[in-house]
Design a protein around this nucleic acid. Structure first.
Lengths: 221, 221
DNA sequence: ACCTGAACACCGTTCAAGT
DNA sequence: ACCTGAACACCGTTCAAGT
């Protein structure tokens, strides 16, 4: 699905005067909000979140440049909404990965690995989560809630590990943050193609190794 | 130094016709390249790398919008040059922090903490390192070299730790990557203000605690 | 060699107007 | 209520022209 093609189409000189067989009233049914979210996601996956243009989203959805303003306060609000849906997906993947594992330690590892894998299989989407174009998080409370819900999976599992005695005592939030830092750091480095620059091959086994090395540091002595 | 003021000045309606006492030929001496780098850094520190505008840089330096093209191929090249200087600074801070510590384990910890501290005291500069506006790293080989040099500090110290028996055997690059992931993850979360969203207080002690927890995982058993 | 001015093809956003 | 058209104040970049 080469969306850039649609975009170029509107740019190309009008030699062929463009027979518009169907008037573009496809989205007057109240489905424009959904269509805009879909178009934005597709564009983001193609060229990354920072390349996203509100006008391009409107173009793909087949509406005028201002139509989005009827459904989103501004560009940041649209990005936040797409990010929120992405976080829901990450939440589900982490939860399912955790459920497949047996034992709290394996569960923690599975969650960490699934975080890294989500990032490496959906780099643009992952980068969107931290796109500065979204602006102050305080302006998007539901996005913050989605973050907390996702972090909650890690937090709960870490607590479970403590209760079962596979992770040492201490503030569970601090321990969860250490774990989060590690997987988030690796995910970020992967997504930014910084690993090959440092001479690493990005792979699944790498994620597992790193996560395991980390969890060795949290284990009871 | 409120640079935004300079910017606004050029926008304000010309009620007062602006006596230009000094003709703006200040930078015709070959110092424009340096002036552009300084202006860019100041603007980046004020509003973040993604808000940077090439035209604003030219404005602050007192030249026309196209003058920068005599010294940089495009906006990405200017950003890369500023990032490179920032990486040099990080390299020096890490090296000095390591030199102050005694013993390879303490050295490793000091380096990790200084990485996180650099990020939290220079958030905009740190974010610039990974700004997507710089574009493909392959286009900026000297920037990649600066990266590798900085990572080299960590790599060398990790090797030292292995030789002294405070870190377990194994591929030193993999171990260094784990350490890098952790400090990079924490730094990123700090810089993106994601920690307060998760209920953390961003502090120096946090960095130390996280780095220590990590290195517990690398220690020999 | 290095700079300016004018121009091009874009942006995000606003406002008035249409249905 | 929801959309369009025209407009505004910006961008990055290019090209011709000046010194």
């Amino acid at each position: 699905v080469d969306i850039v093609h649609i975009w170029r189409a509107t740019l190309s000189p009008r030699k062929t005067p463009r027979v518009r067989t169907k008037p573009r009233s496809r989205y007057h049914h109240g489905a424009l909000r959904r269509a805009l979210l879909d178009a934005a996601l597709a564009l983001i996956e193609q060229d990354g979140p920072e390349a996203l243009t509100l006008r391009a989203v409107a173009r793909v959805a087949g509406v005028s440049p201002n139509a989005p303003y009827n459904h989103f306060e501004d560009k940041a609000a649209l990005l936040a909404a797409v990010a929120e849906e992405g976080l829901d997906l990450l939440y589900r993947e982490m939860t399912e990965a955790g459920a497949r594992a047996t034992g709290s330690a394996a569960r923690l590892e599975a969650i960490g690995v699934s975080y890294v894998m989500f990032a490496s299989s959906n780099p643009s989407r992952f980068r969107l989560f931290h796109a500065t174009a979204i602006g102050k998080k305080s302006a998007h409370p539901t996005l913050v809630a989605a973050y907390e819900r996702t972090f909650g999976v890690l937090l709960d599992t870490m607590g479970m590990c403590q209760r079962e005695g596979v992770v040492r005592d201490g503030d569970v939030r601090r321990l969860a943050l250490t774990a989060w830092s590690t997987v988030h750091g690796l995910a970020t480095l992967l997504v930014e193609d910084q690993l090959e620059a440092a001479g690493f091959d990005a792979g699944n086994s790498l994620a597992t190794a790193v996560v395991r090395a980390l969890f060795g540091g949290l284990r009871v002595l």
